[in-house]
Nucleic acid binder design. Structure first.
Lengths: 353, 353
DNA sequence: GAATAAATATATAACAAATACTTATTTTAT
DNA sequence: ATAAAATAAGTATTTGTTATATATTTATTC
């Protein structure tokens, strides 16, 4: 007789279903705390920014470190510095948080535009002079959707769209090359850059000016990184004007500041025609027309190919933009070039109400 | 209402976090519960599969529904049926959970040296002639850790270690005094400086040369800030040789350039013996031995006392360095002096494989 | 085939355990 | 001396538990 010794070993429960139900050794709150510390540079300030006490932060981070059995910060210094593991977790945490936020908005959308948030990005010029009108129209149609406008550089705006922090953006320059395959770029209007002078400037008396006059002026540019600068270099270069030889006065970082400077007689500047509507009407700025030269740039909407597109974003692109691609609304904006118009027609279904 | 967020400061693009933390109305646990219910088809069985009681599940789902203000299940029937919103949240939840698990794996990998980065600093000589071999060995053992080598002056390298920009460094000179309490300095080998001459130089014929011969030579030094210069001044000064009286030819900033210059008959130079291994073998440089003089310097590893030491740094110090502290590997390097050897033994546990 | 009992699933209530937060204080590094 | 983080002790909140109620389906019975 043999005795069958059938010993049932005790297996931890989490080994039963290996695939999905393993415990996750951190919480969303902990990730948010980690991010806050990284952003603010110290436990104390992170605590303030999250409206909790400092020990709460310390304890949560200690728990997190214990759960992961990895130190996340270099203690000791006055300011907390992330270790390599900390940086890694932060990078993933940001992804996770973004995905969670996307989730929230997707669910809000399900309530059929009765709520939710639309975040629109823009560069300086479009953000200041064009988008307020667009957002106004959108808000009239969808009063329950709250709209945020975030004005940043073209580069930063593009990244924000790529990362899903912004639903869509309107920019006037080139999308960074590393993002060109990630983003959908829909050209929708042409913006013209105008040369503005003080009304009492000698050149303002003449009807049109010529290429050579440009070398005599004192320019007030936006900082050299700006899109307007790049467009100018490109277009003027094509007209055989050496932008390097143009005299540069002070560099300002706001279009309003530039307008004021020109108006005060401090020099000339190139700015979008959308930005000087009022000033031209009031006669406090003069727009000079240069013989044979017209400086255009294409304004484009960018959205993220792969990400979930909210109902609100969809509505913005399909219902609001078309109103602004004709010159009825923004008379200064040019009609689209033929090929761009075709692209727009193909890609944006016009659902007029 | 629109919020114009116009921030002009320049921020690295990876920090582009535009949305300041908004609360996330669900927890990872809730997502896991949702998934369990979807998988199992009922609250009860989900509770069983998660080893909690059934009311716990009910309550969590109720909370979740309240937080999102959306019903997630069609109640009533025997089996809980997901609503539209429930399905959407489930789909996102699975993505989020997957991303969280990926995060865990990435961090575990970092712990197991299956990832991460090790940044090693070095001065010119060690960086050029010694570290490539060390890094090669490290890379063989830990192929998934990417290693960076940063070659700078001793001073700059020391600061980089102090600031945590570099995990560890190998230097041949003195750590700046203000950092001597911050850094752990582990001597691990002695490097000898040799006087090199063109093979056809008259002094090269003689077996050994004497102190006085040094005054007749034309020296090609590294720039005056370099460690080698300081060591030379110190050691030769001790031997009653006035370095100020030595004739200086051109100053070069690369050891390879100096070797070439000497080889071409442009003068003599002091360089590390580790740098001329090949040239001596090939007979294109002559090493002169000076009677009664031996110029040594201690090569040391420096690490930051107080900072968290990454697994990779630990492995480098404990597994790679010992191989290079004996003359088996770098025959030119001298054995450590007795006291230094003792220090090394005390501080570096040799885990030979 | 309607009424009723049994079975199963979810909800609620009351209470217990665990977790997280707070204030006050100490330690540490600048 | 100062500012930041860690620690300690007490409190509040959250989350879980058991026990029980309610609802819905299924089975049984007349």
């Amino acid at each position: 007789m043999s005795i069958v010794n059938c010993q049932l070993s005790i297996v931890p429960y989490y080994l039963f279903n290996l695939d999905i139900m393993s415990d996750i050794p951190f919480s969303l709150d902990q990730l948010r705390i980690l991010k806050a510390i990284a952003d603010e540079g110290s436990f104390k300030r992170a605590a303030d920014s999250l409206f909790v006490s400092q020990p709460a932060i310390s304890l949560q981070i200690q728990n997190l470190e214990r759960q992961l059995s990895v130190p996340l910060f270099d203690r000791g210094g006055r300011k907390a510095q992330l270790t390599e593991a900390g940086k890694l977790l932060l990078a993933y945490g940001e992804k996770i948080i973004t995905l969670c936020q996307e989730t929230c908005r997707a669910i809000e959308d399900l309530q059929n535009l009765q709520g939710g948030t639309l975040i629109v990005g823009a560069s300086q010029t479009t953000g200041t002079y064009l988008l307020p009108k667009m957002i106004g129209l959108f808000h009239e149609k969808y009063p329950y959707v709250s709209v945020q406008l975030q004005v940043h550089s073209t580069r930063r705006t593009s990244w924000a769209v790529a990362n899903g922090q912004v639903d869509l953006a309107i920019i006037g320059g080139e999308v960074p090359s590393e993002l060109q395959n990630v983003l959908e770029i829909i050209p929708y209007a042409e913006d013209e850059l105008a040369l503005i002078l003080p009304p009492n400037h000698p050149l303002a008396e003449r009807g049109t000016i010529v290429k050579e006059d440009l070398y005599g002026l004192n320019y007030i540019p936006l900082d050299s990184q700006s899109t307007i600068r790049k467009v100018l270099d490109k277009v003027l270069g094509r007209c055989e004007i050496n932008t390097a030889e143009l005299k540069i006065g002070m560099e300002l970082n706001s279009i309003e500041a530039i307008k004021n400077a020109v108006q005060s007689g401090l020099g000339a500047a190139f700015v979008s025609v959308t930005a000087i509507e009022k000033e031209l009407k009031m006669g406090i700025l003069h727009r000079a027309h240069i013989e044979g030269i017209k400086i255009n740039r294409t304004l484009s909407v960018i959205v993220n190919y792969s990400r979930y597109r909210s109902k609100a974003a969809e509505a913005f692109i399909k219902e609001i933009l078309p109103h602004f691609s004709s010159e009825n609304y923004i008379p200064q904006l040019q009609r689209l070039s033929a090929e761009n118009k075709e692209y727009l027609d193909k890609n944006v279904e016009i659902k007029d109400s």
